[in-house]
């Protein structure tokens, strides 16, 4: 039974892993930290999985757990310190990236998001994912009115960063 649950969970997670990667890329800025946060989110999702009754979509639930982990639970591990070889890789990747205009824009967008605070990062990501105010208010646990106010501020901030 547990093995069945494990298979089901791993399959669903593998399919939807892009959600976690987006959250990781939003909240971290190097490969080691990205992978570390991905792992912590996966552990938290697996622990909470038996309680997931499907009252919301799997992806919605994943966002919630991912944000909770990135914002509140995640404590940076010491493993992030030794990252010199990875930085070299990243530089190389960044080089290749600028060949492509779209990737360059995406990179700029993530850089802009990095300068937002933790809550604004979540708002920006939910905005870009085209989530309704109802879903945003449910995910963050704030009223819809407040979600709108906060979202407008985040968008203005993002605009100012991207168009100085």
């Amino acid at each position: 039974m547990t093995k069945d649950l494990e298979h089901k969970f791993v399959a669903e997670l593998e399919e939807h892993q892009n959600i976690i990667h987006k959250v990781c890329r939003t909240y971290t800025n190097n490969e080691a930290a990205h992978k570390d946060l991905f792992q912590e989110i996966t552990i938290q999702l697996w622990r909470a999985y038996p309680k997931f009754r499907g009252e919301s979509k799997f992806s919605t639930w994943m966002y919630r757990v991912s944000f909770n982990t990135a914002i509140s639970l995640y404590r940076k591990s010491k493993r992030n310190i030794n990252t010199s070889p990875i930085y070299d890789n990243l530089k190389e990747l960044e080089y290749q990236k600028y060949d492509d205009e779209h990737d360059k824009q995406l990179d700029l967008l993530y850089k802009a998001i990095h300068s937002l605070n933790d809550i604004e990062k979540a708002l920006a990501l939910l905005y870009l994912e085209d989530k309704s105010y109802r879903e945003i208010s449910n995910t963050l646990g704030i009223s819809e009115v407040n979600a709108r106010v906060k979202m407008n501020r985040t968008k203005t901030k993002l605009k100012n960063i991207l168009n100085p």
């Binding site: 593998e14 892993q17 912590e40 996966t42």
Partner: peptide
């Protein structure tokens, strides 16, 4: 994402220690 994980890798992850 360029760090896409396989099912095997995800399976290993769920047995790792949390740093929550």
């Amino acid at each position: 994402c360029k760090y896409k994980f396989s099912k095997e890798e995800i399976n290993k992850m769920i047995y790792q220690k949390s740093s929550s």
